[in-house]
Simulated assay, not measured.
Amino acid sequence: MSSPFLEYTLPDLFSLCPLEFGDANPHYKEAGADSAAWVNQYDVFTHKKRAFFVQGCNELLCCRVYPYAGYEEFRTCCDFVNLLFVIDELSDDMTGEDARKTCGIFYRAMVDPEFKDSSPVATMTQEFRARLTSSAKPRCFDRFVVHCKSYVDAVSSEAELRETGKVLDLASYIALRRENSAIRLCLGLIEYIFGIDLPDEALNDPAFRSVYWACVDMVCWSNDVYSFNMEQAKGHTGNNVVTVLMHEEGIDLQAAFDRVGIVFGQLMNRCLEDRARLPSWGPAIDADVALFIKGIDHWVVGNLEWSFETPRYFGARHADILRTRRITLKPLEVCSEDSREE
């Protein structure tokens, strides 16, 4: 890993995903522009970080993973993903203590609409909360808040681990990644978009939970393998399954990437097999469960597509890398105090 010229081949996750590709939200340009203007008005980032934030094309991610959402729902989802990226970018440079404070502000603003704090994170969160609660069903919102607490705890733990340089074992990492990725929050928005409120009897069913966790892990593992080069150049390798696999299994970089492909395929097979085992809860609930599974399918597929449609992970060569899957490991970035303020 020390050579800046080391090359590796990405696993071909697209060939392992038989789900339907290609859907895009028709409200992307209008609602996406509105959401981008909303987040930009808070001037959260330095010049350099703003450029990186824009590269992320967060609204395009929403376009791919929520192609079925109406304008209002799509705009709300864009606002939330933009808010998540704000928290992620800010916490990347924070100590564990500071990350916990920032995440605490987000959580308190989500729980309490009367929470008083002048920070952009608090204001943005409260504005998003108002949009979400205008139509989200009660159980849907209650679950969303529970996932928010798990998310802020996990992001804070990630920052603390980064301070100490500790790399978790695989089982511990999977548990942390499921939460700090915020994917469970993003999947929670599926219920909001469709206007459904899944009952506990469906959510707690073993087959449903197997499908759900398989999709969560597919999103997390694919994101890790695609973001690894960008993260290692910034010195942020601990919160990545590639690093965890190298440490735990004693394998090199290419073998770790190959292992991600194997696990992704296993998760996909499990997802498809267990959805065929879902019981019936009656016509109304069955229809809602089908809508939710449709939504998580779009997240698995849309995340793969988006990763190569923007320069966030692969720079200007993102389209070429989609074709070749060949990557040259980037050298470690040298960041001075002056450059942090650019």
Rank of each mutant, 00 (worst) to 15 (best):
K149Y: 13
G188S: 04
Q126M: 14
W306D: 08
W221P: 01
H318Y: 09
R108L: 11
C62H: 03
E249Y: 14
D88A: 09
V334Y: 06
T310A: 09
L168K: 06
D12Q: 06
Y173T: 02
L187K: 08
C103E: 11
K137A: 12
D205P: 08
E341Y: 09
Y107P: 02
T123A: 15
G96S: 07
H147Y: 13
R259W: 07
D217G: 02
C335G: 03
E89W: 08
P120K: 10
K29P: 01
R131H: 10
F314L: 12
S35V: 06
E337K: 10
E72W: 11
D286I: 03
M246S: 13
E73F: 13
E59M: 01
D338W: 11
R340A: 08
R50Q: 14
H247K: 15
H298R: 14
A154F: 02
R143E: 03
C215F: 11
N223H: 07
G315W: 01
R259F: 06
S118V: 05
E89Y: 13
L10W: 07
S134R: 08
K29V: 13
N229T: 01
S2Y: 04
P26A: 10
C17G: 05
F106A: 13
R64H: 13
C335M: 11
R340N: 05
E97H: 09
T310V: 14
Y28L: 07
A202K: 11
L185A: 03
A159H: 13
